[in-house]
């Protein structure tokens, strides 16, 4: 491993920019995908991404916005699990963007 930034071009992505293989995910991959979206990942992003990956391990699907908010509220408390906080962190589309950065499939039950 080296510290060189990962080239998003080198990742196998679907047409919407989601990882094709969940196992390809690493924190470096998340950072590369975030840069692609013009986002600089901070600890407050990482805790959401980690919670999302736990969600996926348990339920084997990507949550839509409402269940995402509910789950984050249960996992990290209501000051984190609310749409204002999540919208701010993930450019207004938390379910889609956070799933993408966490290496999950695109949520299917989401506008």
């Amino acid at each position: 491993m080296n510290d060189r930034p990962l080239d998003p071009q080198a990742l196998a992505l679907d047409g919407d920019g989601y990882l094709l293989r969940l196992d390809d995910w690493t924190p470096a991959v998340a950072e590369a995908l975030a840069r692609n979206e013009g986002l600089d990942l901070q600890p407050e992003h990482w805790e959401i991404l980690e919670a999302l990956r736990a969600f996926y391990r348990e339920f084997q699907l990507s949550p839509a916005t409402r269940p995402l908010v509910r789950y984050i509220a249960q996992a990290l408390g209501p000051d984190k699990g609310n749409s204002a906080h999540l919208n701010r962190l993930f450019k207004g589309t938390p379910a889609k963007l956070a799933a993408k950065l966490a290496g999950l499939p695109k949520p299917t039950n989401c506008l």
Partner: peptide
């Protein structure tokens, strides 16, 4: 196939 049992358990979180 997707794990139906795991998905079912997400129902309460989906409201």
């Amino acid at each position: 196939q997707k794990d139906l049992g795991a998905n079912l358990q997400a129902l309460p979180l989906f409201g």
